[in-house]
Design a protein around this nucleic acid. Structure first.
Lengths: 206, 206
DNA sequence: TTTTTTGTGTGAATTATTTCACCAATATAT
DNA sequence: ATATATTGGTGAAATAATTCACACAAAAAA
């Protein structure tokens, strides 16, 4: 299969929206409503879905349950994934207890920080460890995802260690530039860039 | 001017990288190195910059200071913006004290929560208020940006009130679907979708 | 049952974005 | 001073992504 990142990204959002609809007890949803729900057009949504060889067997729209299951299969979203947080400052600590992750199939099974005092002070149900133990814990618990919330510099070091521990994907909240081998899936979330994007459109807009 | 979102988004990242370079004391940077630094190609970067009618007056690359200033002017990133956080759970509280915002020209000047107890317990230098005061405070302090970190439902209500208070842009961390009039700049950051995007590429990758 | 409506599936057309190719200008080396 | 190497700027070409148009099937209405 060779889907574009844009398609994958949209489908991930669709998947999330289907989850909401399912919980709400909705049975069928049209491409139009799906598009509305995720901020896309009905054409793109239909094409995205058709690229995955999924087909609605009715003209009442897509069956929510069925579509979600099929999307999940195709994008491997149907299995639980274990993740860890590295860097337990305020953001890292908040992410450690971010309830949605669990519900959405991502289980945070470990937190790491270099500061022992921080580890002792932190109040959470999730096990926390000094970074020195990272490699062992990640291998032992077969953690696939690393979430990086270290404050400033040092992100690259963390990344290198995550990779050498066998992690498969990294979500980086630190704003430093990171280099990863291309077999590692990497995504950066940069709050400041997001705010800048918004602010840059303040005046330009008609 | 009519720049695509992709260009704007890239330029915002370039702007951030230039800031890093400036602090590091770098004088000149080539389009190639800029591209490397932000994860793009030299062609796109050159084209983006040229679309903004900015020109390097030397063949040693772009002058960091000059380029940053010019980008700042064009994208209105050269002025401080006031922002507020609505919803002071763990994530909201973490964002309230996220130091980078200040450095990057975004000043968080208020936090809001509906839970009075939470307001009393919270430890921060930033003023916090009950949501009932939102309209007044936002107008009084001329806050332009609203950052939404309310836990689940209720996001739309918050958005509506932000808009009626005259806010210009919204960064939404809640994962609920939000409707905004199109004169309001809106961006959603969805942690779960980000993790799903990463996970969905685990097997498919060669 | 027949007709009308609705909604998907998908090639083709359109539009957007990226990459290329190469000129011009400056910097560096000889 | 001259030659060589870099690097940006930019129209044109290539690629990618979106939108359109419409056939087709099912559902709803008549």
């Amino acid at each position: 299969m060779d889907l574009s990142d844009k398609t994958i990204e949209r489908i991930c959002r669709v998947f999330g929206y289907l989850d909401v609809l399912e919980k709400r007890g909705v049975d069928f949803i049209s491409s139009r409503d799906l598009a509305l729900g995720v901020g896309a057009t009905e054409y793109t949504i239909r094409k995205d879905i058709s690229l995955l060889n999924i087909t609605s067997y009715t003209r009442k729209g897509y069956k929510v349950e069925h579509l979600k299951k099929e999307l999940g299969k195709r994008l491997h979203l149907d299995q639980k994934r274990k993740a860890c947080i590295v860097g337990l400052g305020r953001l890292g600590a908040a992410l450690l207890d971010y309830e949605r992750f669990k519900e959405d199939g991502f289980e945070i099974v470990a937190g790491f920080d270099s500061n022992i005092n921080k580890l002792e002070r932190i109040r959470t149900d999730i096990e926390v460890f000094p970074v020195t133990n990272m490699e062992d814990i990640i291998k032992q618990k077969s953690i696939e995802l690393g979430i990086i919330a270290v404050p400033e510099v040092g992100a690259q070091v963390v990344v290198d260690r995550l990779i050498s521990s066998g992690i498969k994907g990294i979500l980086n909240f630190s704003n430093t530039k990171i280099i990863v081998p291309k077999n590692i899936i990497y995504l950066n979330i940069d709050f400041t860039s997001a705010l800048r994007f918004i602010a840059s459109k303040f005046i330009t807009q008609n």
